[in-house]
Amino acid sequence: MVAEEEREPIAFIVDDDEGVRQSIRRLFDEVSMPALEFGSANDFLEAYDPDQPGCLLLDIRMPGMSGTELQRTLLEREIFLPIIFITGHADVALAVECMKLGAFDLIEKPFRAQRLLDTVHQAMAKDREDRALRTWVAEAKRRFSLLTNREREVVDLAVTGLTNREISEELGITSQAIDAHRSKAMWKVGVMRVTDLVRLSDLANR
């Protein structure tokens, strides 16, 4: 598999309050964390390239599109950048809703630098893992799509741990034919051992 060239993660700051935005930016500069600022949810949506890893620091309450609305829009567009909400007032109901929708974390203003930086690092690590997993899943699906229906049937049964004899009873074909299908399939998806086949099939079925 071709390893994608790793892009450096960026912390995106979306807050309508310029003072807050710039002060967070100052903090990130101090620890040499690449960061970009946006004054509104729309500005961010227009500029953001979904292939750019990182995380999103988002103010819940903003004029125009609010933080929660941006969260929904990103979900609709299948953009899974981890979101750290920053809220200026403890609106419990709103906070619960954001967390339910899968926000990474929620930090109340004002906050200590360490809390913010730790959370940003964790969110970026999660984003890296998620992206890697999504690449693997896509790749596994692509490889499995090369299989014929019969090969797919054989593989699906084989990875559940059934023996050749059991599979041949199930599908009504000879054990030699099953061997042939399985080797062909393993060759096509590019694995040598059955344990690897099991792992790949697991990814492809996500």
Binding site: D17, S23, G88, K109, A113
Partner: peptide, 25 residues
């Protein structure tokens, strides 16, 4: 009261951030 809390939190957050950035430096 809730609105005032929100408004006041903005400058407080920014004061805290600059103070932390300076002490990191």
């Amino acid at each position: 009261a809730s609105g005032i809390a929100h408004e006041l939190n903005q400058p407080l957050a920014s004061v805290l951030n600059y103070a932390e950035a300076a002490s990191l430096a």
